[in-house]
Design a protein around this nucleic acid. Structure first.
Lengths: 233, 233
DNA sequence: CATAATGTACGAACTGGTGAGTTAGTTCTA
DNA sequence: TAGAACTAACTCACCAGTTCGTACATTATG
């Protein structure tokens, strides 16, 4: 299992060794990252209480003692996992560029990109669900994650402002509500996939339905922003 | 703590005793129900692995032994909790009557009623989230819950058929997708309440916002069913 | 009095966490 | 530059408290 990510804030930032370099026996960067990788999988798979520190350690090339050495405890490890996951998502969001599109196309595109992003990061959605069961008690204690939602809202605000200015949006709505509308659809598709499948015999996240639901969320948002208040024919 | 619910499928359905009757020392019906009530709260609050059998027993007037006597184990207890919760929700859904309304009003009303129902049963939504973390493994083993989604879909199908017939719905969409659209919004409002609050400083389930979001989901559905495909002004 | 219902006490396995000692790799010094 | 000195990184063995589950005794009730 190759390790290639690097998000550690060490005091001395060691440059990534070239592939030809001899494998170090001691590599704090690698150890930390590997623990986080495994922990993220285990927490997403089994929940906070379901995941076992011993098992996480066993799936690592290091020992349980190292988890306590680097993170302090199970709870702090979970917070670290959440922090890294949210930070990565934020980076992906920041890469979204729809400013060059007309407002209607921009908001549709944003919805579709959000949908794809959620479907591609199902473990992250699971972690968020788990954190909600715990009433966001870990997220709340993290300082790293303060004001993490702002950039996404700013983007939507820009689109809404432009759309109202040029008359393409007729519905008066605020950015957080639009974000919530898009998120709810995308999150539900992943988070409630299993009970929905059981009750309605339809896999919301199945590869064969992705295109359909991607289009649907785009149309939903556009219909809402252009349709409410317009007289029905 | 008064007990008043009664959903047990005992072999002999004992009629509810009048309030004046002497309190029985042994009352399997009451014991079973009380265990289910407490277990539902604890599982919803802490998740499957977070909830403790000893703690559930302690919050009951009976002992842990009775949990094993009546349900067999922690896992079967959780399944019983899910079964009762889903069955109650089904009853509430069956009580919804919008057949007398015009299609547009009917679908809007259904969305609004669904929203209220979700907000009033947040513990149920939590149980569903928890069950999804476990990939619906308990729900799948339950025979009681087979085809539980059918009535809800049938109702939507009737409304959609009527709306297409009289021309008030222009968008071609199937009933399960409409259900999913409504559910995603309502479920998200409750299930992701805590992380959303933390990131965006807005309580989606706050009493002061319920009217706003109830209206919003109604308008969303109506806009989607009437708006997609119509030329934008 | 037969039996369904209930309480008591206990145990085996697990689980998060830690004390204490060891080693790889770096840096300082003569 | 040899090697001493130092420290971060690491291993091992273990513990104390917990947690699900059960054997066995007891009592209410029809």
């Amino acid at each position: 299992m190759p390790l290639n990510r690097n998000g550690h804030t060490g005091s001395l930032m060691t440059a990534a060794r070239p592939a030809s370099a001899p494998e170090r026996q001691r590599d704090p960067e690698r150890t930390r990252t590997e623990i986080l990788d495994v922990a993220a999988r285990e927490f997403a798979r089994l929940g906070y209480d379901g995941a076992r520190v011993d098992e996480i350690a066993a799936l690592t090339r290091t020992t349980k003692r190292m988890i306590y050495y680097y993170f302090g405890g199970k709870e702090q490890l979970f917070v670290a996992v959440l922090e890294r996951a949210y930070t990565e998502v934020r980076k992906a969001e920041a890469a979204i560029d729809v400013d060059h599109l007309a407002p209607l196309d921009a908001i549709r595109r944003l919805a579709e990109l959000t949908y794809d992003h959620h479907l591609d990061h199902q473990d992250f959605i699971r972690l968020v669900s788990i954190e909600n069961v715990h009433e966001a008690q870990h997220l709340r204690t993290s300082e790293v994650l303060a004001n993490l939602g702002a950039p996404a809202i700013d983007l939507i605000t820009r689109i809404l402002t432009a759309g109202k200015a040029d008359g393409s949006f007729t519905t008066d709505v605020d950015a957080i509500d639009v974000h919530m509308m898009i998120s709810s659809f995308c999150v539900f598709s992943v988070a409630n996939r299993h009970t929905f499948q059981t009750l309605f015999d339809r896999d919301l996240a199945g590869a064969d339905r992705r295109a359909h639901y991607r289009t649907m969320i785009g149309e939903m948002v556009v219909a809402y922003l252009t349709g409410v208040g317009r007289p029905v024919v």
